[in-house]
């Protein structure tokens, strides 16, 4: 493909390539390199005002903007789905300002921006998974002082994090925390994996892809380079475990994916479907069928956005 063909918006674009100016992108890249060099460490960066409110993924968008190039193939998911409002908007944003091809296919994407999920399909070397992070500091809920949490990270004083797990067991008889479940990276830094379900925690361990985490409001970037050890915290007598479902995906019959519960009517009927919409669609295309295959939810309306 010629350069002209890959950058169709060049002439009418009023913004710099990928929205951010080059100096800002360089600053962010330096922070990313530092974060990659110290896996799990929260590197500060000069977060910019973005054309979306904080909490809509400004950290992830800045990360993507700093690393994206015209040859990239971009995928964006929200809660696992490609077709939600935020995902569609952010995908369109980068198609426009960075002239990239977009995709819903996990395997095809070079950059996947995500909120709340890691795709079911294992990632490969060369892929970058960009997480949007609301609160990068796992200890913040228990210790309000930034000076103190920084010291705790510096000196590996992580006893406090166990207090939250302890509270969980005391209250529920098990570690009931389901999302944003804290991990140790390379047995050195305590890290919040962003609010992904703990179901996804094991996927971070020894992953082939680069995992980047950006918190725009909190102005922090952290990273897990490929093949890094990532361990979820637990107690000796309450080992870490992921969520399981008694149901399979109603549409594709998957037994091993993260399921969302969908309420169907006021009578309490419901179905469980894969939260990873692409994974589910792909399985159906391969001929897998679930108990409610053919349900209208299997044909999401979002596809007309393409």
């Amino acid at each position: 493909m010629s350069a002209a063909a890959t950058r169709p918006n060049e002439a009418e674009r009023y913004y710099n390539y990928a929205y951010l100016d080059e100096q800002t992108k360089r600053m962010i890249r330096r922070a990313i390199l530092k974060a990659l060099a110290i896996p799990g460490y929260q590197a500060p960066f000069g977060s910019r005002e973005m054309p979306v409110p904080y909490g809509w993924g400004t950290g992830g968008i800045q990360l993507t903007a700093a690393i994206i190039g015209p040859d990239d193939v971009y995928k964006c998911i929200d809660q696992g789905a490609d077709d939600t409002t935020n995902a569609v908007s952010i995908r369109k944003f980068f198609a426009r300002v960075a002239d990239v091809a977009t995709t819903e296919d996990t395997a095809e994407a070079t950059i996947i921006q995500t909120r709340h999920r890691i795709p079911e399909q294992p990632l490969k070397a060369g892929q970058v998974l960009v997480f949007q992070v609301p609160q990068p500091e796992p200890l913040r809920g228990l210790e309000a002082r930034e000076t103190e949490t920084r010291a705790m990270h510096a000196y590996e004083e992580y006893g406090l994090q166990y207090v939250s797990l302890y509270e969980n067991i005391s209250a529920f008889g098990r570690i009931a925390a389901t999302a944003g479940y804290p991990v140790m990276v390379e047995e050195r830094y305590l890290m919040s994996p962003s609010p992904i379900p703990k179901f996804d925690n094991p996927k971070m361990d020894d992953n082939e892809a680069i995992l980047l985490f950006g918190a725009g409001r909190e102005k922090r970037i952290y990273a897990i380079p490929p093949h890094t050890r990532v361990r979820s915290l637990d107690f000796e007598d309450y080992p870490f475990e992921v969520q399981t479902w008694e149901e399979n995906c109603a549409l594709c019959g998957a037994e091993d994916s993260y399921l969302d519960e969908v309420v169907l009517d006021d009578a309490g009927n419901r179905m469980f479907v894969c939260s990873d919409s692409h994974h589910c669609g792909q399985r159906r295309a391969e001929g897998h069928v679930g108990p409610m295959a053919g349900h209208q939810l299997a044909n999401p309306v979002a596809e007309d956005g393409q």
Partner: peptide, 17 residues
Amino acid sequence: GANVAEPLMNLGRRHYG
């Protein structure tokens, strides 16, 4: 209870029971 147990966790104890 967690307030009382925290110093143990700070010492590296990891057995809830």
